[in-house]
């Protein structure tokens, strides 16, 4: 672990991450608002049931169309304000609250369910980060960014562990992944999934690669030099699930993934 974990050093990567994270998230909000509002209007709770409670404890009340639009607008503006350094801590706090009101009613939409989970966690970490209001050139401790990387690691590691827990190493024999491809073809006509399902050897190779990727992603915490290899592998992995099964993690994972370029971007800006 670097010595700057708790002792200030280097440049203010945390502030840089805040800027990149908030801007990319605000952009995604703008791009998808229309689609998400249309989904909201279809009353998804009638098919999917109620949205999950926050931490399994606090249920978000159902909101009207007007409140949904308001939550979206305030979320967008607070992200923008945080990125521009306008009372950043308050802006992050407002964005965190608005996240739950905005995404709760549309949590069942395919590219939101689970895919936005890291957003409130990252916002919470930023909220308690000491350096989000300081200049980019100021040395700051790196623990908030390491914590965000741990959250990304947990996502992949847990996904791998759950596979091993339920199926053991048998998960890599290819039949499990083949059945998932087939399942996606059967209900969604995804021809790429069917083509992959027809090739058990390829399914076996992909199963091994997926499990190896998920179970070893944590290495980036200890060998930062490998981070870019894993980040590129992660992007390819998510693009693969998008093209074969229409599972789009990149839309809302990208803002969190900017944690891996915060250092480079910050140094570039400071040295200009």
């Amino acid at each position: 672990m670097p010595t700057q974990l708790f002792i200030p050093g280097g440049v203010n990567q945390v502030r840089m991450f805040l800027i990149l994270f908030c801007l990319t998230l605000a952009l995604q909000l703008i791009r998808n608002f229309g689609d998400q509002f249309n989904f909201f209007k279809t009353s998804p709770a009638k098919i999917y049931g109620d949205s999950p409670a926050v931490l399994g404890l606090f249920r978000i009340p159902r909101i009207s169309s007007g409140s949904f639009i308001l939550a979206g607008v305030v979320l967008f503006l607070s992200l923008l304000a945080a990125a521009l350094g306008v009372i950043p801590r308050v802006s992050v706090a407002v964005a965190l609250v608005c996240y739950f009101f905005y995404f709760s009613p549309i949590i069942s939409i395919s590219y939101v369910n689970r895919k936005t989970n890291l957003i409130p966690i990252a916002l919470m970490i930023l909220l308690f980060s000491p350096s989000i209001a300081r200049p980019l050139s100021e040395p700051t401790p790196e623990w908030p960014l390491v914590l965000i990387k741990i959250c990304i690691v947990q996502m992949y590691l847990s996904a791998g562990i759950q596979k091993l827990r339920r199926c053991g190493l048998k998960w890599t024999d290819g039949t499990f992944l083949r059945d998932y491809f087939l399942n996606h073809y059967l209900w969604g006509d995804m021809s790429a999934a069917m083509r992959l399902a027809q090739n058990l050897t390829l399914c076996r190779v992909l199963s091994i690669l997926v499990l190896a990727f998920e179970l070893t992603f944590w290495i980036i915490l200890f060998v930062p030099a490998l981070a870019y290899v894993y980040v590129v592998s992660g992007i390819l992995f998510h693009l693969g699930t998008w093209f074969t099964m229409r599972i789009n993690y990149m839309k809302y994972l990208m803002p969190v993934y900017t944690v891996f370029i915060a250092d480079v971007a910050c140094r570039w800006l400071v040295n200009r």
Binding site: G56, R114, N117, A159, K163, R166, W171, L177, N183
Partner: peptide, 16 residues
């Protein structure tokens, strides 16, 4: 426990 998740998708065997 939303937003925390164990990401257990694709882990259970499917019996098609």
């Amino acid at each position: 426990a939303w937003p925390f998740s164990s990401y257990n998708m694709f882990s259970a065997p499917l019996d098609l």
